[in-house]
């Protein structure tokens, strides 16, 4: 097998400081079998998360009876969704009408994004933690559960609901180390055509390894109250975290 000496102590020393795949050894020029299969398992987990769909009722059952509406983007399937980000940012036409009766100050969208796995794991819990913190200050609409959705789909949803603010909870693009990481995108005065620079983002919501549900909900509540005072989100919101454009499933 590997002809590096002391490979186990070396790996232990290096791995203490990074979760990179350091000191995995080599056979000739190549990766040892165990390390190769570990990589393949991580990639398989990420691939399955990308192609996973929101299971019927999976989000709803975590909402403790809070009303919800299910909508679909204009991307009819996963293959189209991956090839046409523009379609994932638009509602399918019949769904826009179903939202128009629901006047709310705050619209919460629970969206699959690039990892339905993340959304099913953390979406409902985070939405209900937000309700708990915000229900006395905001009139919150029914939860909108969005399929084949990109972040900007929240703009059209928020616009249809005539909401002051939309928060989109959406599965991040899976990495090898995390396939179940959720992000929250906050947009004041949502309407079609909003720029990414007009949003705030909280990423890496992924208990127990990443940000906890309580931490994320507290942070969202803080940004919401600042956004209401400043009447804006994004880079214009003083001290706001600028949105890293390459991060999200935009």
């Amino acid at each position: 097998m590997a002809d590096l000496p002391d490979i186990t102590p070396l790996r232990q020393r290096l791995s203490a400081f990074t979760n990179a795949r350091v000191a995995i050894g080599r056979v000739g020029s190549s990766v040892p079998t165990g390390a190769m299969l570990e990589f393949q398992l991580a990639h398989a987990r990420a691939r399955d998360a990308v192609h996973d769909a929101l299971a019927p009722g999976a989000v709803e059952q975590g909402l403790a009876g809070w009303p919800s509406i299910s909508v679909h983007s204009a991307a009819p399937d996963r293959a189209t969704y991956l090839l046409r980000p523009d379609l994932g940012r638009q509602l399918q036409p019949e769904d826009a009408a179903s939202l128009q009766m629901d006047q709310a100050q705050l619209a919460i969208v629970i969206a699959d994004g690039l990892s339905a796995t993340a959304t099913m794991a953390h979406g409902a819990a985070l939405a209900m933690a937000m309700v708990e913190r915000l229900r006395h200050d905001w009139r919150i609409g029914p939860m909108v559960i969005a399929h084949q959705a990109r972040v900007a789909l929240g703009d059209e949803i928020g616009e249809a609901m005539d909401a002051q603010m939309v928060v989109v909870l959406i599965g991040e693009r899976p990495g090898l180390s995390a396939a179940d990481s959720l992000s929250a995108y906050l947009t004041w005065a949502p309407r079609r055509g909003r720029l990414d620079s007009e949003r705030n983002c909280i990423s890496n919501i992924r208990p127990p390894h990443g940000r906890s549900i309580a931490e994320a909900a507290d942070e969202i509540a803080r940004i919401l109250s600042r956004a209401r005072a400043a009447q804006c989100t994004g880079v214009a919101l003083a001290g706001g975290e600028a949105l890293a454009a390459e991060e999200g499933p935009d």
Binding site: N19, R21, V22, A35, F39, H43, L176, S177
Partner: peptide
């Protein structure tokens, strides 16, 4: 990249 897995940028 160690093990082809960039743990910061999240790609291979």
């Amino acid at each position: 990249v160690p093990g082809a897995d960039d743990v910061m940028l999240g790609y291979q």
